[in-house]
Amino acid sequence: KEEVSSHTSPETGIWVTLGSEVFDVTEFVDLHPGGPSKLMLAAGGPLEPFWALYAVHNQSHVRELLAQYKIGEL
């Protein structure tokens, strides 16, 4: 988790977690339908608090999209 928390910018890579999985979403930030700034709120940390607020994320196609960016496990 400490390593994930240091990845919060395009220069270091933008990493997020979901459960025990780690994702590098650097290439996706500008494609995020809610805008880059919304995704950047989660940079370096867990997606769960944000996904709890926005139910649109609880769809299979969203998880499939995220899976493409998986880089490891906590």
Rank of each mutant, 00 (worst) to 15 (best):
E2A: 12
N58D: 11
T17A: 09
D30S: 10
T12L: 09
G13W: 00
V56S: 07
E2I: 14
S6N: 15
P49E: 12
P49F: 09
A55P: 15
L39W: 03
S60V: 13
T12Y: 07
T26K: 04
G13V: 15
S9G: 14
G45Y: 04
R63G: 06
L53M: 15
T26S: 12
F28S: 00
P10K: 14
A67L: 11
L74Q: 08
E11A: 13
K38F: 11
G44S: 06
A67C: 09
L39R: 05
L66R: 01
V16H: 05
G35L: 04
E21K: 11
I71C: 13
K70L: 08
L39F: 08
A52G: 13
L31T: 04
R63F: 06
Y54S: 12
L47I: 06
G44N: 03
G44R: 04
L18T: 06
P33T: 02
L74M: 15
L31S: 08
R63D: 08
E21T: 12
A52Q: 14
W51Q: 04
T17F: 10
H7S: 07
S5M: 15
S60D: 10
V4R: 09
W51K: 03
K38A: 09
N58S: 12
P10A: 12
H32R: 03
K70M: 09
D30V: 09
M40E: 03
R63P: 03
G35C: 02
Q68V: 10
V22N: 05
L74I: 14
K38L: 09
I14R: 01
S20K: 10
A55M: 06
V62Q: 04
W51A: 01
W15M: 10
G19S: 08
M40C: 15
L41I: 05
G44K: 00
V22T: 07
V4I: 14
D30N: 12
E3M: 14
L47K: 00
I14D: 00
Y54M: 01
L66E: 02
L53R: 15
L39H: 00
H61S: 10
G44A: 03
K70H: 04
G45L: 09
E27A: 11
D24I: 01
L74H: 09
K38W: 08
P10H: 13
V56W: 14
S37M: 08
G19F: 02
G72S: 09
G45I: 06
E64D: 14
F28W: 07
V62F: 04
F50H: 15
G35K: 02
M40T: 10
Y54N: 15
V62Y: 02
S20Q: 15
G72Q: 06
L74P: 09
T8Y: 15
L31Q: 14
L39P: 06
L53T: 15
I14A: 01
T8K: 15
S5L: 14
V62N: 00
S37Q: 12
Q59N: 11
G72M: 05
K38V: 04
E21Q: 13
A67Q: 14
T8E: 11
L53Y: 11
E73I: 08
T26D: 00
P49K: 10
F50V: 02
K38C: 09
P36K: 14
P10E: 12
G13Q: 07
I71Y: 03
A43S: 02
S20I: 14
W51G: 02
G72H: 09
L39A: 07
L39Y: 01
V25I: 12
Q59T: 12
V4Q: 08
T12A: 14
H7V: 08
K70Y: 11
W51F: 06
I14T: 06
H32W: 08
G35F: 01
E27K: 13
M40A: 04
G35T: 03
G44M: 01
